[in-house]
Write a protein that binds this DNA or RNA. Structure first.
Length: 119
RNA sequence: GGAGUCGGCCGGGUAAUCGCUGCUUCAGCUUGCUGAAGGGGAGGAAAGUCCGGGCUCCAUAGGGCAGGGUGCCAGAUAACGUCUGGGCGGCGUGAGCCGACGACAAGUGCAGCAGAGAGUAGACCGCCUAAGCGCGCAAGCGCCGGUAAGGGUGAAAGGGUGCGGUAAGAGCGCACCGCGCAGCUGGUAACAGUUUGUGGCACGGUAAACUCCACCCGGAGCAAGACCAAAUAGGCUCCCAUUACGUACGGCCCGUACGGGGAGCGGGUAGGUUGCUUGAGCCAGCGAGUAAUUUCUGGCCUAGAUGAAUGAUUACCCUCGACAGAACCCGGCUUACAGGCCGACUCCGACC
């Protein structure tokens, strides 16, 4: 596996995985997104994205946000450690540009991994 | 050149780096994973989910009722509420565009305000006073009446114009126009025409009012459906053990039932596989047809994800980039849309 690849192994695949994170997680919140994180038993992080249709109406906007999140996650993958992360989009997230999204996410990756390791 | 109508097409490009997901060919092994190379990877609306069909499962002898839909005629089609051609009505100078466009001389119902009267018409103003009656010498006045030509109301007042006729009038009569019915002619039909006959003449509007008529419709949907199948709990069958112990029956013993071990079977949850893209397919050509469409021949394979891929960053160029993301698949409709290209046609103006 390449260092910055994004294969199925680093994704949360089933509803069970998501519920596992929801049940007991460390949260980090901003006006646009909420991050939930929890340590896992693997040697790498995993990512799940939840964008409600109610929050972001149009399908192409939801797709755009997901792609940016995945791309950013991929670039920061080595520094994150063994945690499961779920990203929840809030209303207004589709107003941000690609650059703004990247900046926002970069901060949040650092924040959430620090909080997890403190725990 | 300006203004406009109709039809068709396109929907940023190139390069580098880093990714995602099928396919093909190699290589490796732990035989379903890893690596390499090549090649494919959102739309004209993928959208709204408003119609129609395929497909799947369930139901179903046949027929009817109820309910829903469609609604000028003919054709196209797998089918349609779609499309094409035609008819009729309306709009536009025109190219063209728009129309739920069957039946109210089967029945029932509905219609605010105004107005005398609104559907078997109707005397408010007006017009008339011939006949009959009363008063009066008479003119005339009154009564009984007549009258739909005029005024006025209204969205709409029950054919129009003219002449005759009359007390005044009136299809009361006649001519012309219009209308109904029947016939004839043209057309597959809707419908149109009529130098034909006939009727004095309505049969007002409204059916996205009930209704009537004609035709169509079984239900649910890919989370359809099919297959594989842990862990845990439970079910059935067979075999072994029925020694000991516990519980129940009992005063106690014997005994019976349950709790044991092993093997097999079936249902089935998590999860996985499949359905899943070769199809009423696309392109080209000849032919049929006014056209929608279609026969035949040749060629092509053009996304298939499943917490859900089809992207990000940088650089350059240009006209500086809109609406917007497949989820079983097709045919339509509707709605959104920066900008651009092509063709045909119409009107106006100028030049020759």
């Amino acid at each position: 596996m390449g260092e910055k690849s994004f294969s199925r192994a680093v994704r949360l695949l089933t509803p069970t995985h998501f519920e596992n994170v929801f049940s007991d997680a460390v949260a980090a919140s901003t006006p646009h997104i909420t991050l939930l994180a929890k340590k896992n038993q693997l040697d790498h992080p995993r990512l799940g994205i939840t964008l409600a249709k109610k929050r972001i109406r149009r399908a192409h906007e939801r797709n755009r946000v997901k792609r940016i999140v995945r791309e950013s996650f991929r670039h920061h993958l080595p520094q994150l450690g063994n945690i499961d992360i779920v990203i929840i989009g809030k209303s207004g997230l589709d107003q941000l540009s690609n650059q703004d999204l990247f900046k926002l996410l970069e901060k949040q990756w650092n924040r959430i991994s620090r909080r997890c390791s403190e725990r």
